[in-house]
Design a protein around this nucleic acid. Structure first.
Length: 428
RNA sequence: GGGGGGUUUCCCGAGCGGUCAAAGGGGACAGACUGUAAAUCUGUUGGCAAUGCCUUCACAGGUUCGAAUCCUGUACCCCCCA
């Protein structure tokens, strides 16, 4: 058995535990079952969930059995932890859809085979919906002193806010998550719950409930939240969250996100999110300090995570797109390849015959493609050398585009400046 | 109710009869540099069939050869006195 606790400790992933001295020995003794919960707020997880997912994967690789719990029931309520305002409730249909989407993503990181360490995926809606209100109050609610609950950070923060408050529903969230833990303990002999540090209150509520209901010793462990050095959230860009599904965030965009991680954040990301060995990470730390321009850490981070989430094919698409996006000339491509690489890029449809005769003026093309608001703006971009056709700098304002400028059967790739792209599709 | 000040191009802010598409700054965009970074430097920043033409300085009228600039009215904002 690998000493997973030592590894986690080295990576800085142990924030709080319910039993510091005991946990390491306990984990090394024999395979244990561990769970982490995921909120089905959307049909895809985003980068924020990568950390707990990787945690589960690490546990599985160390020989333990991971359980991914999708909060179909708790998602209907909303976790007050870390939220400043009451959450909107999701519809049952929406939840079902989300749970299905998340299942597929979890499966990429942990194995659901029949071995002793084979993962389980459970949905707490399956057991929570069997409870009647009265039963729940009697069996579970009875064990929760309200005065203790009110002292928990997640609740207290909301109580102290004058502008928002907390509903009885969200107040009760903790009971549901606590009961999840107890249920998983009964059904799967699960004894450890992991999560982000914002889950500490909910996790300890579970360990306490286990003791009160069944005199069971349960364990909890939290990892630090993955935040950036500048204080903002990891996984967010101006254009929105970075998702794990290729439909929402293309493998290329995903790759780029990690490639662009700030130097100060790279070490943490490598430790938290990759499975690189300690030696490899230290080598990268050194490289980052001595030759930052090589960006070895970012490259490695991007490669590993893209491979993990989008597979070999996704990685090669991302690599090829990267090559093209940053200078590589575009020639001898076909529509399908370009479509994949430029999946996130806006495109406009134009009639094929505009390319015949004198061709389409570059000025018009830029305006049609949406790269310039007016011809004047297009003229400016071109005369300053900031306009490219298929990644070749445009010669001048008078240039006209003809069929020879097509990069593939029907597509032409225009670019303004360093990375602003647009496609023109010429259908006959 | 009385008195005074304001409304300028994406934002702030000059301009107070022609030389004003309108200073300066910010932002934005582009180029150089660079690590697909930051900083820095340079250029651009109403539209167009472009040595010119058209639209813009709260809105509507007027004076004038000519108005962002002067006059009248309208709307909104601010300040002072009641």
């Amino acid at each position: 058995m690998n000493d997973i606790f030592a590894d986690l400790k080295w990576r800085g992933l142990v924030y709080q535990t319910t039993a510091d001295d005991h946990l390491q020995k306990w984990l090394n003794e024999k395979p244990r079952t561990v769970y982490a919960g995921f909120d089905p707020t959307a049909e895809s997880l985003h980068v924020g969930s990568l950390l707990p997912l990787m945690q589960l994967r690490r546990f599985q690789k160390a020989g333990h059995r991971p359980i991914a719990l999708v909060g179909g029931a708790t998602g209907m309520i909303g976790d007050p932890s870390g939220k400043s305002a009451e959450r909107n409730l999701l519809s049952v249909d929406q939840l079902e859809q989300n749970v299905a989407g998340i299942k597929a993503q979890v499966a990429k990181l942990v194995d659901f085979d029949e071995t002793p360490a084979g993962a389980q995926l459970v949905n707490n809606f399956d057991w929570m919906n069997k409870f009647t209100y009265l039963e729940f109050l009697r069996d579970v609610g009875k064990h929760f002193p309200v005065n203790v609950m009110m002292a928990k950070d997640s609740i207290r923060n909301r109580l102290e806010r004058e502008d928002s408050g907390i509903s009885y529903t969200e107040f009760s969230y903790m009971l549901l998550q606590a009961y999840d833990f107890v249920h998983l303990n009964q059904a799967y002999d699960c004894e450890l719950q992991i999560g982000g540090s914002d889950q500490w209150g909910n996790i300890t509520a579970g360990t306490e409930l286990g003791r009160r209901m069944h005199q069971k010793q349960l364990f909890g462990m939290t990892c630090p939240l993955l935040t950036k050095a500048d204080g903002t959230k990891m996984g967010k860009t101006e254009s929105g969250a970075i998702w794990l599904s290729a439909e929402r965030t293309s493998p290329y965009a995903f790759y780029q996100y990690w490639f662009n991680v700030a130097d100060e954040d790279a070490g943490k990301c490598l430790r938290f999110l990759t499975e690189l060995s300690h030696e490899e990470i230290e080598t990268l730390d050194k490289s980052r300090a001595e030759e930052p321009h090589q960006r070895a850490s970012q490259k490695s981070l991007a490669e590993h995570l893209t491979q993990l989430i989008h597979g070999d094919e996704g990685l090669s698409t991302a690599r090829r797109a990267t090559e093209i996006f940053f200078g590589g000339t575009i020639e001898d491509m076909n529509d399908a390849q370009l479509g994949q690489i430029f999946a996130d890029v806006p495109s406009s449809e134009l009639a094929r015959d505009r390319l015949t005769g004198d061709g389409l003026s570059l000025l018009d093309a830029f305006v049609e493609a949406g790269l310039a608001k007016s011809k004047g703006e297009a003229r400016r971009a071109i005369s300053q050398g900031g306009a490219y056709v298929n990644n070749v700098r445009a010669e001048g304002v008078d240039q006209a585009l003809t069929e020879r400028d097509l990069a593939s059967e029907t597509v032409m790739v225009l670019r303004s400046g360093k990375k602003k792209y647009a496609l023109l599709r010429f259908q006959s």
